[in-house]
């Protein structure tokens, strides 16, 4: 099947129409694997997913015939012992994640990303756990590689209510203590929180030698502030209101927001934390790609030890 004829499983507009998260996640992963995305790491996902190109002399029993059916190319599955990593995906479910711009809520994007990553990791026979939080830990599924674990995670994500503020301080400290076994931590949040507390929290993870990926989810409206008409902005997590001509505030807002994102990135860089900004308007391959890149770096390091 030619790649151009497959649906764009990574397009948020397409995904938004898929209401079931597990189905949505599967679509994302399949789309990513089959290369139906715009990621510059085209093909790299196949490597990350434990595949490598067939070389003469490889055993035919390790050929992934599903991939061949879809791509007409021969790939060998990697064995799972090469990828034995415990991952914990931490998803912000505070009220701020309820913001919906053009397509879907930030939380929906975050949940899809989390489910997709889980799906991808489980294909690698990796263990994946899920934590949802706002001012506290809302749900905590310990890492597992069982087949129905994804279903559980999806279930938790689908039932999550967004009704409290964001507080990364104490929550992350607790989490850091709870996740004892060294592994990978993927944080998916809009990080509308105190940066100092965030730093402390991430430091805790790093001190426990966790590999941390920060996926900073923001709506395109929050990034570009495209509003034109007189607007009354009502806070999702506060009672503040701003009634203004958005054009008059745009420049300053963008400056502030970009500065915040820069600081967040810098903070992450300083702690050796991978940072990826996710725009909810953009396809989900960015999230998966960043995970792949990280995974690759980690795998190489692991091998080199």
């Amino acid at each position: 099947m030619a790649a151009t004829q497959t649906p764009n499983y990574l397009d948020p507009k397409v995904l938004e129409r898929i209401k079931r998260l597990d189905v949505r996640a599967r679509h994302v992963v399949e789309g990513f694997i089959t290369g139906a995305h715009r990621s510059p790491y085209n093909g790299f996902a196949i490597e990350f997913a434990g595949h490598r190109e067939y070389s003469p002399g490889d055993e035919l029993k390790h050929i992934d015939w599903n991939v061949w059916a879809k791509t007409d190319r021969l790939y060998i599955k990697e064995y799972e012992e090469e990828t034995n990593l415990k991952s914990t995906i931490i998803v912000d479910c505070s009220k701020s994640m309820a913001y919906r711009g053009h397509a879907w809520r930030k939380f929906d994007y975050a949940a899809t990303t989390a489910a997709s990553l889980t799906h991808l990791l489980q294909r690698q026979q990796d263990s994946v756990g899920l934590v949802t939080f706002d001012t506290k830990v809302v749900a905590n599924l310990p890492p597992s590689s069982r087949p129905n674990h994804l279903k559980q995670m999806v279930d938790v994500l689908e039932k999550t209510e967004l009704d409290d503020k964001t507080d990364v301080g104490d929550v992350f400290l607790d989490l850091a203590q709870q996740i004892r076994q060294r592994g990978m931590v993927i944080l998916i949040s809009d990080f509308f929180a105190d940066l100092d507390k965030l730093r402390e929290s991430l430091q805790q993870f790093r001190l426990r030698r966790h590999e941390v990926i920060v996926m900073h989810v923001m709506d395109d409206d929050e990034i570009n502030f495209p509003f034109e008409d007189h607007t009354r902005f009502i806070g999702l997590e506060s009672i503040d209101e701003v009634h203004a001509d958005p054009r008059a505030l745009r420049k300053s807002y963008l400056k502030i927001v970009n500065e915040y994102m820069r600081k967040t990135r810098k903070l992450c860089d300083g702690l050796g934390v991978d940072y990826k900004l996710l725009n909810t308007k953009e396809p989900l391959d960015a999230a998966l790609t960043s995970y792949l890149a990280f995974r690759k770096r980690h795998t190489r390091k692991g091998r080199s030890r």
Partner: peptide, 8 residues
């Protein structure tokens, strides 16, 4: 317009 805004 009324917008429920996260980045208040």
């Amino acid at each position: 317009k009324r917008v429920d805004w996260a980045a208040m």
